[in-house]
Every structure is written in structure tokens, then in C-alpha cells.
Amino acid sequence: MAELTESGARTVRLRPPRHRIERKAVLWWMVQAIAFPGVLLAASVIVYAWWEDARPWLAVAVIGLAVVTVLTAFVEPFWRYAVHRWEATDEAVYALTGWVVREWRVAPISRIQTVDAVRGPIEQMLGLSTLRVTTASSKGAINIGGLDKDVAADIADRLTVITQQTPGDAT
């Protein structure tokens, strides 16, 4: 007879962060994709049309860039939006990012060195903001993109206050 029993062992799982990012972030990533591989694709298509001798080589570049552009403009943004989560408590900043490779990052408030709300040109147009939290490790920064600009500014202020109250030199 099969019987479910609770053994002493417990599996430990990492729960996802609580908050999702703004829906508008999809648009932000799309515009970015059109700006970077998109423009390159347009340029190579133009050269392809005008310069006949280079066609055998350029065909590879055009096909490759077309694939990359379609992926980054129409797959990556939706995929990222489905994945990205974030949370900032009084003890830690916790973010889940990525698409093909997803990454959970946690940095304790006591080790935070700088907190910035960064806004690029496209983000400014969309009213978005990126929260950038750096620690003493050169590789330990946490970037949370696609936040509402007011939310990001609030968190940046709150984290700055908490960080100042936390003693230690954060290394």
C-alpha cells in the first residue's frame, strides 16, 4: 500500500522575486533591437542590393543578421518579460533576469556600494528606469531594467538610506 510520509529531509527551492516589471519594457527591448542589429541589417541589405561582387559573402551576413534581428526584436522581449522579476527587502536586493540563460542574483544590503536609477533615451520616452545596484565585486552588480521611473527612484532612495545606516566598508 502506497503511503505518503513526511521524511526529515526537505527540498530547498528558490522562490521567484515578488514583483514583475512594467509591460512597456517589451517595447523598450524591441526598440533597442531595432536600433542595434536592425540598423546593421538594413545597412547590409542596402550594400547587398548595390554591390553585386560582394553578394556571395554578404548573403551570409544578411541571413545571420536577419535571424538575430527577428529573435531579439520579436522573441527576446516577450520571453524576457515572462521571466524578469525583482524584489528589494530591507536585507537584500533580489532579481531574476535573462531569457535563454536565466539568472537569479541576490546582493545583501550591507554590501551595496552604490544605488543608481539610470534612464537611457528610449527609457525616458517610455517613462521607464533601470535600477543599478553595485557591490564591491566588479562582477556583482545587479541591474533591474524596465521599472516605472517613480518606483525606481523610490527604491533607489530607500536603498540609499538603508545602506547608509548599515556599518562596515562593504568589502
Binding site: E3, T5, S7, R10
Partner: peptide, 11 residues
Amino acid sequence: PFLLREPVHTV
């Protein structure tokens, strides 16, 4: 704070 500890159910 971000961990979920689930009891392991064995059959």
C-alpha cells in the same frame, strides 16, 4: 528569506 522549504514526500 527567498527560500521555500518543502517537505519531501516519499512513497
